[in-house]
Nucleic acid binder design. Structure first.
Length: 363
DNA sequence: ATGTCC
């Protein structure tokens, strides 16, 4: 009945909070959950640990995916070379990304195979929490790679905004946290809505990147887009990823906190199954939002946090949010990536340095 | 996380 195996990918040097491990054990009791993997960025969430993958041969559990269905990372190589970037000018030009996108939503939705009913004010906007759009440059190349060190890069972290939230709310109102049986109609309905939210989130990141690059007077080429909140068919069952990047969808970016490095990595396949074909999706929280605010508000001014230890800039005019999302609230990304490397799950391609992060101009 | 809760 409670036979799920739990495997945590983390070296003894990595600190994993007990509350998160306890949450994995709670989730292991759900009917039909066979295997659980915690990644090195594992941390406690609201009931469900973040940085984990859950496999079931028989059940789909929407609350294991959470409300931000399709949330993930996109990475673009900008047409504008790094040497042309003027940070002061860029900072002035970057504003208004919270406003609704005035382009042809219906056409873009149709291209993505989505109904015009999914148009709305949130499409093309970053949102709150840990979401951002960030300019980066190559810090280090690891071995032979086609990554261009003279290029400027844009990374976008966002999701399905109110759409995924509404899909989960609708499910919970009917079923609470009971699982859906694969093959039954209610399950198919959820999965159809989930897949729409995933496609919507991919389009959202695309539009955010387009708007961001428009303001800088340039264009970009998308190098990758990966979702870290999803449930997908896997080996005859269902693989839920809650803050876990897929290791079977090509290159992956693993972002540090704003103010630390981001890694571009290539998943290795030999031992991928041990980690349920999943990778860490970032540094992982060390402190909850409220802890971060309490600890940091006495030590740092807003101006302090608008410049990071790497000298990058953070545009975040929401003063609660800039404390909640400060780099100090996150674990060490270098250790997280070392753990994945040691576990034989990745090869490093490049380390990317943040230059400017846009979160919100909404005060 | 949230066309977000006070």
């Amino acid at each position: 009945m409670t036979g799920a195996t739990i495997h945590i990918v983390a070296s003894p040097e990595s600190w994993i909070e007990q509350a998160a491990v306890d949450q994995l054990h709670q989730t292991a009791r759900l009917e039909g959950i066979d295997r659980i993997v915690g990644l090195p960025d594992l941390h406690a969430g609201r009931g469900i640990a973040v940085g984990a993958a859950f496999w079931s041969p028989s059940h789909v559990y929407p609350h294991l995916v959470g409300s931000d269905i399709g949330c993930g990372m996109g990475l673009w190589r900008c047409a504008m070379p790094l040497r042309k970037l003027r940070l002061d000018a860029a900072e002035r030009k970057l504003r208004g990304l919270e406003e609704p996108w005035s382009g042809d939503q219906v056409a873009r939705l149709a291209d993505a195979g989505l109904s015009r009913d999914l148009a709305g004010e949130a499409l093309g906007t970053i949102g709150g929490g840990n979401h951002f759009a960030e300019l980066l440059r190559v810090e280090t190349l690891h071995g032979d790679t086609e990554v261009d060190p003279a290029a400027l890069y844009l990374m976008v972290h966002s999701g399905s905004r109110g759409l995924g939230h509404a899909i989960l709310e609708r499910h919970l109102a009917q079923h609470n946290v009971a699982g859906l049986i694969a093959g039954e109609e209610a399950c198919a309905r959820y999965l159809a809505a989930h897949d729409d939210a995933m496609a919507w989130a991919v389009l959202n990141r695309e539009l955010i990147a387009k708007r961001f690059l428009d303001r800088l007077g340039t264009t970009g080429e998308r190098l990758l887009d990966i979702c870290h909140n999803s449930v997908t068919p896997h080996r005859g069952g269902w693989l839920h990823r809650k803050g876990a990047a897929p290791a079977d969808k090509g290159l992956v970016v693993i972002p540090g906190s704003r103010g630390d490095m981001t890694y571009l990595v290539r998943p290795r396949q030999e031992r991928a199954d041990e980690a349920l074909h999943s990778l860490a999706h970032g540094a992982g929280r060390k402190w909850s939002r409220s802890e971060a605010k309490d600890k940091l508000v006495r030590r740092f001014s807003i101006a302090d946090l608008e410049r990071t230890k790497l000298g990058s800039r953070v545009i975040c005019e929401d003063r609660d949010l800039i404390y909640e999302e400060a780099q100090q609230a996150y674990k060490d990304i270098h250790q997280v990536v070392r753990d994945l490397e040691q576990a034989g799950l990745i090869d490093l391609i490049a380390t990317l340095r943040p230059l400017l992060t846009y979160k919100t101009r909404r005060a």
